[in-house]
Amino acid sequence: MREFKVEIIRYLTDSTYVVRIKRNGFKFQTGQFVMLSPEKLAQQREYSVYSGENDPYIEVLIREVKDGDTSKRLKLLHPGDKLKLDGPFGFFNFHPDKFTGDLFLFVATGTGISPFHSFIRTFPKLNYHLIHGVRYGHEAYEHDDFAKDRITLCTSGDSSGDFEGRVTDYVTLQKLNPDTNCFLCGNSEMITEMFDILTAKGVPVSNIYSEVYF
């Protein structure tokens, strides 16, 4: 485990924020996660890397969890504070050359957008479409970082998104090339429902990749 210094914290909503720390030579593959904890807390939690492989910093997107000690403590950090980082870990790592075909569908709920943000920062020319599900429109975390025609915001709690409803409702209504490589990240209910929807549309199980967040 290594210590890193916080550079900036960006508050995206009341409960969601991005912590940027100095890179210090840390290597990872886009899609992987790290384990973070404030300097004096033993408990670690895992967070996908939000920044790209080539960015000169590391960023993680964090949502404060009601009963979560780590996310609450990380939110209180200031530039110059230290945190402990361990990793990288995980098997959601992405490189377009690893896949047959060049069609990529990314489906995220909430902060599950994090690895996809990293994918796009690392491979900006990717032929992808990202579907991001949140409750309210203001939770569309930094959508300006994605090409407008490649992202669809689904909002289940208001009508401010491109689609009013859940990501599963949206994908159900879409035509899909069965050769698409589908990546799912977010809550487990979404992932398991989406698994049914995608397989019903002819996507083979071997083309579905998932990262369960909660």
Binding site: F91, S188, I191, T192, F195, D196, V205, S206, S210, V212
Partner: peptide, 15 residues
């Protein structure tokens, strides 16, 4: 079951 394996975050499927 593949969906249960996903929820279990098992990193393998039945295939």
């Amino acid at each position: 079951d593949d969906k249960v394996l996903i929820r279990m975050n098992r990193k393998h499927n039945m295939g």
